[in-house]
């Protein structure tokens, strides 16, 4: 159930947003954004991995 105030502005927003969500452009925007997010998080995960060689280098300074 929608609890937001149902004034004309809200109704217009709902209509526009609904149209965008169901349009081919909207769907394609969403898919692209989600795919980009997936790629960025995969890259971040890779970057956070510790170089195993560095675990054997002593701190000598």
């Amino acid at each position: 159930m929608n609890t937001a105030p149902s004034d004309s502005k809200t109704e217009a927003f709902q209509r526009n947003a609904q149209q965008w969500l169901q349009s081919p452009e909207g769907r394609s925007d969403i898919q692209r954004a989600l795919q980009e997010a997936k790629e960025v998080t995969a890259r971040l995960q890779k970057d956070r991995r510790v170089d195993l060689k560095s675990l054997h280098e002593p701190f000598t300074v």
């Binding site: 947003a17 969500l21 909207g26 969403i30 954004a33 989600l34």
Partner: peptide
């Protein structure tokens, strides 16, 4: 990402 894409579209 979800917020920004939905905000931009809506």
């Amino acid at each position: 990402r979800v917020l920004k894409i939905a905000a931009a579209g809506s």
